[in-house]
Nucleic acid binder design. Structure first.
Length: 656
RNA sequence: GCCACCUUAGCUCAGUGGUAGAGCAACGCUUUCGUAAAGCGUAGGUCGUCGGUUCAAAUCCGACAGGUGGCUCCA
């Protein structure tokens, strides 16, 4: 007999060799039916696995977060099986679970897989699911003498070098080689899996893309087929509804519909803003400026272009070269003026700034500073340019020119923690103003490409860690993800669709001040090197605007709406009165428009709704006589006839 | 940059080798209208660019540009 411990603390006696499936059955038949996998001493395993004596065991059902991963991993196997049936030349590589489903990377020596192939693959998967093949775990040796190993090698042609590489790796690490089999299909896998393929009825393929073996662009190009899986049909449908909702909120689509911005092929990655988009952009900047003033920032302006020499000093030339725009001249040939010499190197080559920090360092060092001025906070709405590979540009989220709400704090080492604490509060307050209250923080440490000594990095990293710990803030640690000049804290915010976006960043830098030979006179009368903190809250004003468009689905709160009120005269006869109302609203400080078009009220209402204008005010004969207005709210529907003062009073709390 | 797909009127899209189409938007006229689409009419395109095949190319082929989905997730 063995004894295992259950999550509620109780113990359960089982016969020797009993599995988690046996345990589930001994608890109740109902549990046995819904059991997906088990958690034994903290590790997720198959139900079939023999339980060790004294183990802590929890039976996982579809309600447990881990179960979905198990299901999706099983679905990846099933998809690989289906793909091999349709594409016999395909070679399997890896097929992990990802946030929204799973994928399988496949090497195709010839031909291709496109979404057109999905129906056939899905039909094959349906057959496999219907057959209800059990997933069987097979432990194997490393050669063909083992039945499972031989079968595994044979299943996709027998000469799959990717599999060989994977097996070699496992052998080197001295791990057990295990396969999972369902029906005739077998795949290298550490498991666990759902009991059988009948669990995999709610699976759909979602997209196909390219990828590389081992994520290395030098290695083989693979085809990555994505899919997703759920326990129930409803959950699967909800997921596709979510995708549909996200698609409807796409800021690139709304950007055109609401006349906020557009892109032109002659300016790839450089957005143009229409008046309404520029209005929002300016409102965001105004809001940030008022917050910077409250916190004693000094706003500065620095040049877009600096000499290449300066970028050597800052380290950007060595570490950021690929992302920078450099200047070259075109000159008319001295002998033949009709000929133009391209790409002529300047005597003093220049580069467009990808970051604002060197400019701020140059400003700082124009004179000697005292510790009494510290902390000194230089802020700038800095326009930076960064080259991006053509395939990664995406609406306002990934552009080649954007405005950072950038600032650099210069302070003494003792002031670092105070500054960071201030910034965390500051940033959370800003996000809160947009209803973005779900903020999580990540700490990134020294990357491979870095400047500064190990000692300096150590000091910087521990300063950030200590501040977070002292404030009791939970964070995720990302080793090796820091900026080249220092470790950083990143702020990730969740929008109304529960998607996470990285926005704010706080980066500690002990290197750049030294490289630029910055100094301050301390209380001891000696020269010291200040500490520099790089920080941005929106990150990129343009990108933050894109996030807000999607977060609000284009229905901006009153204070951010480019047009706050639209006045709709019932007919031409009431245009004069509409204009009077408009003048009063403008005087009050509202962004108001009159719809002068010769359309019916219903149509004007429709247009105002589609433009997501917070208030539509209808004026006709009744209103003109009573000197009143008839208000319709975007969010609350028809509010009815009221006096202008009444309407304006109701807005007071909204007004920022 | 790499893989797949896409590019036709301002927008959304139809058109698979034989004289370029629709809806919406725009403009004009009629209508003067009460809370999500009044009616009629007009104008608008070297079919992304360049080259090739063909008697003939939006359509077939190639190059380039731009766009879309991916390219961190390691059995």
């Amino acid at each position: 007999m063995i004894s295992v411990k259950l999550p509620d603390g109780s113990a359960k006696e089982l016969s020797d060799g009993a599995s988690a499936a046996d345990l589930a059955k001994s608890i109740s038949d109902g549990l046995a039916r819904v059991a997906v996998a088990a958690k034994v001493n903290g590790a997720v395993v198959d139900l079939q696995l023999e339980l060790p004596d004294g183990a802590e065991v929890a039976i996982l059902t579809k309600k447990d977060a881990e179960s979905l991963e198990v299901l999706r991993h099983s679905a990846a196997h099933m998809m690989a099986d289906a793909i091999l049936r349709i594409f016999p030349k395909a070679q399997l590589t890896i097929g992990p679970v990802v946030d929204e489903g799973f994928y399988y990377d496949i090497y195709l020596p010839e031909g291709k897989i496109t979404p057109d192939d999905f129906p056939a693959i899905e039909a094959e998967m349906k057959k496999i699911a219907k057959a209800g093949h059990p997933f069987v775990r097979c432990v194997s040796g490393y050669d063909d003498a083992n039945e499972h190993y031989a079968r595994y090698k044979a299943i996709d042609g027998g000469s799959n070098k990717f599999k060989q590489e994977l097996v070699e790796g496992i052998k080197e690490r001295g791990e057990t080689l295990t396969f999972y089999k369902h029906g005739d299909f077998i795949d290298l896998c550490r498991g666990p899996h759902v009991p059988d393929t009948s669990w995999l009825k709610h699976v759909k393929l979602t997209k196909v893309s390219g990828s590389y073996w081992r994520a290395d662009a030098e290695k083989e190009q693979l085809v990555r087929v994505y899919g997703t899986a759920f326990f129930s049909k409803t959950e699967l449908e909800d997921y596709f509804k979510f995708l549909e909702e996200a698609r409807k909120r796409d800021h690139r689509v709304l950007g055109e519909q609401l006349e906020l911005f557009f892109m032109d092929e002659d300016a790839p990655g450089f957005p143009f803003f229409y008046p309404k988009g520029a209005m929002i952009w300016n409102l965001l900047v105004d809001f940030m400026r008022s917050n910077l003033r409250k916190r004693d920032y000094k706003e500065v302006k620095t040049p877009l272009v600096l000499s290449e020499h300066m970028w050597h000093t800052s380290g950007h030339y060595d570490n950021y070269l690929e992302n920078m725009f450099f200047t070259k001249m075109k000159l008319r040939d001295e002998k033949d003026p009709s000929k133009i010499n391209q790409n002529v190197e300047e005597d003093r080559p220049m580069a467009v700034k990808p970051m604002n920090c060197p400019g701020h360092l140059m400003l700082y060092r124009t004179r000697l500073h005292s510790h009494n001025e510290f902390p000194l906070r230089f802020g700038e709405m800095g326009l930076v340019h960064r080259r991006e590979l053509s395939g990664v540009r995406h609406g306002l989220f990934r552009v080649q020119a954007f405005t950072q709400d950038d600032a650099h704090h210069f302070c003494t080492p003792d002031q670092v923690k105070g500054e960071i604490a201030l910034l965390i509060e500051f940033f959370k307050e800003i996000y809160g103003a947009f209803g973005l209250n779900d903020v999580h923080i990540e700490l990134s440490t020294k990357p491979e490409k870095a400047i500064g000594s190990a000692e300096v990095w150590e000091k910087a990293e521990s300063a950030l860690k200590e501040t977070l710990d002292e404030k009791g803030i939970k964070y995720q640690l990302n080793e090796g993800d820091g900026a080249f000049y220092g470790p950083k804290i990143d702020f990730h915010i969740r929008d109304s669709l529960n998607r996470s976006w990285q926005c704010g960043t706080i980066q500690l830098d002990f290197s750049m001040p030294e490289r630029f030979k910055l100094a301050y006179i301390g209380a001891d009368g000696q020269r010291h090197t200040p500490v520099m903190i790089h920080r941005a809250c929106y990150g990129s004003v343009e990108r933050f605007m894109g996030i807000l468009i999607e977060h609000f689905a284009g229905a901006f709160p009153l204070w951010l709406a480019p047009v706050q009120v639209q006045i709709l005269p019932v007919s031409e006869k009431f245009v004069d009165y509409a204009k009077q109302v408009h003048a009063k609203l403008v005087e009050f400080g509202l962004r108001s428009e009159v719809n002068l078009k010769d359309d019916r009220v219903g149509y004007k209402i429709r247009e105002a709704s589609l433009q997501k204008i917070p208030y539509a005010i209808v004026v006709g004969e009744k209103e003109q006589e009573a000197q009143s207005i008839n208000v319709r709210s975007r969010d609350k529907g028809e509010l009815g006839e009221m006096q202008m003062d009444q309407f304006l009073e109701s807005l007071e709390e909204w007004k920022k």
